[in-house]
Design a binder for these strands. Sequence first.
DNA 1: CGCCCATTTGAAAAATTTCAAACGTAGTGG
DNA 2: CCACTACGTTTGAAATTTTTCAAATGGGCG
Lengths: 245, 245
Amino acid sequence: MAAPTEALEALIRKLVSTSALTEEERQAIRRLPATIRHINPSQDLVEDGERPSHCGLLVEGWSYRYKLLDEGRRQILSFHVAGDTPDLQSLHLGTLDHGVGALTPCTFALIPHEHLRRLTAAFPNVAALLWRETLVDAGIFRTWITSMGRRLAYGRIAHLFCELYLRQEAVGLAADLRCPMPLRQTDLADATGLTTVHISRVLKALRDDNLITFERRQLVVHDWQRLYDAAEFDPTYLHLHSFTR
Amino acid sequence: MAAPTEALEALIRKLVSTSALTEEERQAIRRLPATIRHINPSQDLVEDGERPSHCGLLVEGWSYRYKLLDEGRRQILSFHVAGDTPDLQSLHLGTLDHGVGALTPCTFALIPHEHLRRLTAAFPNVAALLWRETLVDAGIFRTWITSMGRRLAYGRIAHLFCELYLRQEAVGLAADLRCPMPLRQTDLADATGLTTVHISRVLKALRDDNLITFERRQLVVHDWQRLYDAAEFDPTYLHLHSFTR
DNA sequence: CGCCCATTTGAAAAATTTCAAACGTAGTGG
DNA sequence: CCACTACGTTTGAAATTTTTCAAATGGGCG
């Protein structure tokens, strides 16, 4: 993996999962000039306040959006897996209002704004699909707001696990109630608005209740129904197509 | 106010504030068939789970997005003033993952998806500007997540007031540190993830500290700098153009 | 005037944080 | 192979923030 063309094929597969693309549209996507960039944990793809000239398509690894406040406070805004485009909005917003960091070693395919703009101007259908990606993103933000505002820590964490499992399942990265979960408790804390101490306690409760366990950085769901109930989960917001579970 | 054509002129003005529109593009927007709909508080423009066939352009009044959970819990996701399009994302997502309600009596101009799709297919520049609207929305969601996750009640409420003042100022609805603020304490509570009791106490603290007061459903900011500091406000996320304050 | 609704206040309870220390584990270098 | 270190996790106890419950207050309006 990692050749630019393969990254673009993955993008095509992702877009096609929503709506068909003509051969002409596929060709145009394949012609996008993409360069590969590797990012290590503790490095950023882009920083808060930057005005990027490229969009990054995540090819491999986990990345996350975040904002920093005073006194080392950090808020994680979203997690990203292969196929995601965590700074796609820079195409139309110019200045980034958050950073994008790497949780694990990441491979990104960088696509110049200029070419994306040309592509979307020529192919409204492709534009609509990329637009849609950013709209799903916004739906996830809305759901996180709801979680943080109206769920206790237990349900909030359960909800995040449901989301991350289903999103990975949808792109073939998870199956059998088992999925990669490289987050540290610090990351969970900064994503849910809690402290690591409390995360530790609530994870213990989730384990004691036999909903989940961890095995070598993998989440194992032991009782999907009860996890789902604890989270008051409603998958509508993920806007996945073939929804089975 | 309220004739469909005037609503569309307002939309044009809003879009133009970001990037110029050609005369042809303006004409195409003016040709959109819009129908007017009035919504009273306690009524919804659209409900969670619906598959709308129109997008609503808010012409007058305040509306809000929200989600409901068990036991009467409600989370407000955003507030909207004239010029906003709180269900624009339905154009590409199909199923709504939240409801849109009216805080005050509202006037909406309803534009059929079908015509919006035709417009955006024909005019990529217009598509980009509408896309951008949804991206600013997402930026606001990100900031709310940060507020809810990493700010105490005092700063969270201060932050919301900063945002609502600046957004109204940007579209000419506010000036002189004074703006309409029709929210009840219940709405503030459901927007910030707090309870009305706590909202009441924190508002008292904000008043006692001489940051703000209310006069006939208007917010009056007495000390912008200190409100701003209490909120740890950074206006980047609003992606406003002529930013003065 | 009386009623409805929103707001305020008080006191106790709950959720979560803070601070501090202990524990575990996976590398690194001797 | 062991000691050492770094980092992440766990645990305990006290403090803080916020909620809950309950009652009182206040304003607007028919």
